[in-house]
C-alpha cells in the first residue's frame, strides 16, 4: 500500500484487519482473445482467486495481466486511460452489457463488489461493423472522430469571439446543452444497440449545439452532414428501442434523438447542400 508511512500509532493491526477483508473473491473469466483484425478470435477462460470487492473491474484485469506476464503469456489488450469515468476510453462488454451490470457508469467505475464470489464473467469487445476489433478487447472507434469532423463544431476561429456575457443564455437552455454535451464518446450506445446504430452519439452533439444560440447558424447543415457521415461509416439504423440510453454511462436522454430528427427533417426540407 503506497502512502503508508510510519506514524506514532499502531496501524499494523488496522491494516491486517483491512487486508483480511480484502482478497477474498474468486471469479471465473471468459475473455475474448484475438491477435489482430485479420485473425479469428475466441473466448479463453481464466480463473482468479485473490480478488478484492473494492477493486475496480480494470484493476482485476491488471491482476490477471500480471499473472499472465509472469507465466510468459501475453496479457489481455484493453483500452483504458483516465480510470475515473470521463475519458471514454474503456469499453468492455461484460456479461452481455456495455460497461457491465451497473447503470450510469463506465467499465473503470465498475467495482468487483457488483459481482458475487464464484461468478463467471464473460468479457467481450464492442461489437459493431463500424468498430473493427484491433486486438483482444480493443476496437477502432475512429468513425466517431470522423462524424465529429463532418460538422460537430461551431465555425469560429480563435480570436474572433465577442465578450462571453454578450449573449445571455437562459439557465435551462444552458443546462440542456450541458446534458447533451456530457457524452464521453465511448461507444456504449453502439455496442448496446441491436442495429449498432450511433444515433445517440450523433444526436447528443447535434442537440448540444442546436439548443445554444452559438450553434444555431449551422444547425441544419450540421445535422445533415453528421447523419450522412454516420451512414457512410456503416452504423445501423435507429429503431428507437432506447437500449442506448439505458446503457449510456452518462445517461444521455433519448429526447436528443427526437431533436436531431427534427433538425434533420428541417434540413432535408430546405437543403441546398446535399442529395438524398
Amino acid at each position: 500500500m503506497q502512502p503508508l508511512r510510519r506514524t506514532d500509532y499502531d496501524f499494523t493491526t488496522a491494516v491486517a484487519d483491512h487486508l483480511q477483508f480484502l482478497y477474498k473473491m474468486k471469479v471465473n473469466l471468459k475473455v475474448w482473445r484475438q491477435k489482430n483484425n485479420n485473425t479469428a478470435g475466441k473466448l479463453v477462460e481464466y480463473g482468479l482467486d485473490n480478488i478484492s470487492p473494492d477493486m475496480s473491474f480494470l484493476e482485476m484485469f491488471d491482476v490477471l495481466n500480471g499473472e499472465l506476464t509472469r507465466k510468459g503469456e501475453e496479457p489481455v489488450a484493453f483500452d483504458h486511460d483516465c480510470r475515473e469515468g470521463i475519458c471514454g476510453m474503456c469499453s468492455m462488454y461484460i456479461n452481455g452489457r456495455a460497461h457491465g451490470p451497473q447503470t450510469g457508469a463506465t467499465t473503470c467505475q465498475l467495482h468487483m463488489r457488483s459481482f458475487s464470489d464464484g461468478d463467471t464473467i464473460v468479457v467481450e469487445p464492442w461489437r459493431a461493423r463500424a468498430f473493427p476489433v484491433l486486438k483482444d478487447l480493443m476496437v477502432d472507434r475512429s468513425a466517431f472522430d470522423r462524424v465529429i469532423q463532418s460538422g460537430g463544431y461551431v465555425s469560429v476561429n480563435t480570436g474572433s469571439a465577442p465578450d462571453a456575457n454578450e449573449i445571455a443564455i437562459p439557465r435551462s437552455v444552458s443546462d440542456e446543452a450541458m446534458d447533451a454535451a456530457q457524452c464521453i464518446g465511448c461507444g456504449a450506445c453502439v455496442a448496446a444497440c441491436k442495429n449498432a446504430s450511433a444515433m445517440l452519439f450523433v444526436a447528443a452533439k447535434v442537440s448540444h449545439m442546436a439548443v445554444l444560440p452559438q450553434g444555431k447558424a449551422e444547425s441544419t447543415l450540421r445535422a445533415e452532414r453528421m447523419v450522412a457521415q454516420m451512414d457512410a461509416e456503416g452504423f445501423g439504423a435507429c429503431s428507437f428501442t432506447g437500449a442506448c440510453s439505458v446503457e449510456c454511462p452518462k445517461s444521455i436522454s433519448l429526447d436528443h434523438i427526437a431533436r436531431m430528427n427534427r433538425e434533420y427533417l428541417g434540413a432535408k426540407l430546405t437543403s441546398e447542400n446535399m442529395q438524398g
Binding site: 461551431v154 469571439a161 439557465r171 444552458s174 446543452a177 454535451a181
Partner: peptide
C-alpha cells in the same frame, strides 16, 4: 470568450449570464 463562442456550456445564473 473563445470557449463560449465554441459552445462550451459554462454554468449560468438564472438571468442567463455566466
Amino acid at each position: 470568450d473563445q470557449c463560449v463562442a465554441q459552445g462550451v456550456p459554462f454554468a449560468r445564473e438564472y438571468g442567463g449570464l455566466l
